[in-house]
Nucleic acid binder design. Structure first.
Lengths: 212, 212, 212, 212
DNA sequence: AATGAATGAGGATTCATTCAT
DNA sequence: AATGAATGAATCCTCATTCAT
């Protein structure tokens, strides 16, 4: 039967999906494989058929969903765009979309913060695969804008983190404070980009200002 | 010896301190009370003499260290300062000091992200005690600067989170990626403030600019 | 081997049997599940696979062995017998057999006395399933004997407990004072029945006697 | 101060009283000394000043309240009475009063059933001090009545337990089934005595009947 | 491939008991 | 005499992991 064959093929993915939900809900340590299993519609034994240990399951779950994100990042970066301003603001919007507004991306952030200490390999890979290239990209965009005379020289140009900070903070916000206060996301993003681009703008008064 | 009495007074604090270290290292679920006990130099039973459950211990630990932070925030806010620029940048430096560079503040951030779901009461209190007042303060400073003609009108003025984003991100950075890459903190903070103040500066070209 | 499957079927019963022995020996609170497990030839975990908590194990153990008794009571009551005297004395002998001489029945009595306060549901069920119907049965037998002119009217006719008292007392005796003094059970039962039937007998002198 | 002196003197008694309540409520194993202490208005340490261990406390509590009962039994037995019928029924009423209706007496019965196995010495003493003499007394009363021609010869005469059975059963009843059904105690006791005395009555038809 | 019964080490919690004050 | 902080052995219960079927 095809149904069965298809099931078989889909099993690991279903388990990873269930694992994501449970780990996101309870964190690594407090998640019970039993719950992952029943959410995936299988039994504990089946999980062990596909994944050696709870640690491995966690690791592969992260790898799996990271890979999806990674592909999107690559795809995005391949796209051409016009002015440097536009490129930069597009990238920022992309980051908001993927790491703050998208639940998967956000929860991966949580996994890093919550369980990173127990999975140094994961953290290193995540850093190498996402964080470093993304920061690199931001820095390049800014440098290119500076070179083109579109942006001013600023010490912040060395720190993509400064550029991206508010986007990550919004992700954290959703992870922790959802329910405490509503945020008008559109206005937030626009405010961020507005402030940022204004801070990068070349004007007579800051054109030649050296870093303090 | 006054050992007995003196110990009695000190015990809860010692246990809280030990609990902070263990919870910070392993997270709520993976922390063993036995380890907290031996770090505090007592036995398991003693912890239960002072704290009803592991949950309570965690909660009171957060409360304890939060209270210290809260006091510092209040004290800081009481201080007068000169121009609005200076007030704002002083506050930003304060936030870096307390929530990014200081280990206690940083780890409290981790607790919120990692275990907040299990302690909704703690999250609500933390929000009410720190986050809301701090954001409020930032917004006030910006508004006052605008009113004084020192800062321009910007949609970011409504979102203290945008102003503070890079500071929180640096905290996260230390929590997760320490060891992946060194960061020149001084330059980071200066870059942040420089970019921000430039973004808030009133210039002929942005004086009346509407958000793009 | 069918070992696996066969065991699976038998496990719960084996655990219940072991639980009976341990609970009977030590009472609910002082029984260690570990001991139940090793008596049943399994490990602690296995008990929890079949029974949610110690309380549940206790409850289901009672339910299990009560059900056996209940079946016997029902079966007995279905049997026809001759005179009312005979019916009554047969029933009394049955009660001795099941609730005083039989260890299982006796220990269930102990469980009610010793741990009933912690298991009000069990007590209520036991009362509804055994005690009430048995008393009901006794009362019916006596009433029928009275109606048939075989027994005299007596205020004790309303209280099956009075009729059965010595039988239960013998059960208690075995529970508590075994070893203090030997009892000639046969003579005891005969003495009880003799006294009882004589007390119920219709004679010229008591035929119409009102209670003193 | 006299108050203090008096308190000191009363402490052990207050502790025993509190112990009775707690042990009666929860049984030996499930009773916490902490609860006994707070009920007695002292701290755990104080209990250990007066009683070496939990076992000793239990034992002395039983001894204490048994002694009160014992005194009453002795006192009762010293009283003269008229006919043997009356002596017997008085004694039965006394037993009802002391062991079924009186909470202390009843709960001591529970202690024997519930925890007797762990306190064989207590059981033996209880048997020697109460049970044996009481049964002895009942047997004597019946024998004397027979010798006086007031009662018939019956095999039950050897078993005071048969005579007293319903009284003990009523005690058990209150211990276990209170709340399941109300019992009209007065009618119950009268029914018991009526049935018993009728069973012991000498009539033409049973005057010479040998035991079957 | 999948099941789920069984394991057993691990960890939270309880509580009788001790002892410095 | 009395306190109550401290202990630590005991015990319930959990859950990752195994393995016969």
């Amino acid at each position: 039967m095809k149904t069965r064959m298809r099931r078989k093929q889909e099993r690991p993915g279903e388990i990873l999906e269930a694992a994501f939900e449970e780990f996101a809900e309870h964190g690594f340590a407090a998640t019970r494989l039993e719950d992952v299993a029943s959410r995936a519609g299988v039994t504990k034994g089946t999980i062990y058929f596909y994944f050696e240990t709870k640690e491995r399951l966690f690791g592969e779950m992260i790898r799996h969903f990271s890979a999806l994100l990674l592909a999107e990042v690559d795809e995005f970066l391949a796209k051409p765009s016009e002015s440097h301003k536009e490129r930069l603001s597009n990238f920022i919007r992309f980051v908001y979309r993927r790491f703050a507004l998208d639940r998967k991306g956000r929860e991966i952030l949580r996994f890093m913060v919550a369980d990173g200490k127990h999975f140094p390999g994961l953290v290193a890979r995540h850093y190498a695969d996402f964080v470093a290239p993304s920061l690199q990209r931001v820095n390049e965009l800014v440098q290119m804008g500076i070179a083109a005379g579109e942006f001013r020289e600023t010490p912040a140009a060395r720190f993509g983190e400064i550029i991206m900070g508010p986007a990550v903070l919004l992700g954290i916000w959703f992870l922790v404070f959802t329910g405490q206060r509503e945020i008008d996301v559109e206005a937030f993003v626009n405010g961020h980009i507005d402030l940022l681009l204004d801070g990068l703008r070349v004007t007579p008064s800051n054109a030649a200002s050296p870093p303090p």
